[in-house]
């Protein structure tokens, strides 16, 4: 199997507002490219089946499980990872106890940041419902939900 010659595929996309060009193996997932080619290890693999959301990134502004995105599909598109978030934007989560072990956290804050940036999506469901794609085994979710509600401007947030 190691003598198998693999195709290489150069792709370009926008990563955390910076242009990025990288050569990938077509069998790689976006998660693999981020973690193992680009060293952006903030994005975690929790289940490799789109259940836990630990690998959540924003693709063209929408949360997606990067374990289910073929890397070749991000060409020409916009990817945002947890590494793009600054400490200031995370203050409410810090205060509310939204992180415990931290393994689900990068995915949680990516979905959360999508909700906070687009509070109109709350018309499609409550915070509790919209966060259902991010499994957390530590908090029971209250700390996470409080952190999001405190971060939404017209819900008592900053």
């Amino acid at each position: 199997m190691s003598n198998e010659q693999r195709d290489r595929l150069p792709i370009s996309f926008t990563l955390n507002d910076q242009p990025m060009r990288v050569e990938i193996d077509p069998a790689e997932r976006l998660l693999d490219v981020l973690r193992y080619r680009l060293g952006l290890t903030g994005t975690k693999e929790g289940c490799a089946e789109g259940e836990c959301g630990a690998c959540t990134v924003l693709l063209d502004g929408l949360p997606v499980d990067s374990c289910l995105v073929p890397a070749y599909q991000v060409r020409g598109r916009r990817v945002e990872t947890v590494e793009s978030l600054d400490a200031e934007s995370l203050a409410t989560y810090h205060a509310s106890g939204a992180t415990q072990c931290g393994a689900c956290t990068p995915g949680v804050v990516m979905t959360a940041s999508w909700i906070v940036r687009h509070p109109e999506v709350l018309g499609r469901g409550s915070v509790r419902e919209l966060m259902a794609g991010n499994l957390c085994r530590c908090t029971g979710y209250d700390g996470i939900i409080e952190g999001i509600e405190d971060a939404i401007p017209d819900r008592g947030g900053a």
Partner: peptide, 14 residues
């Protein structure tokens, strides 16, 4: 606040 909280929230925790 949790000592390593920001490191976890920003994905820097290794």
């Amino acid at each position: 606040l949790r000592r390593e909280g920001l490191s976890k929230l920003t994905g820097r925790e290794r």
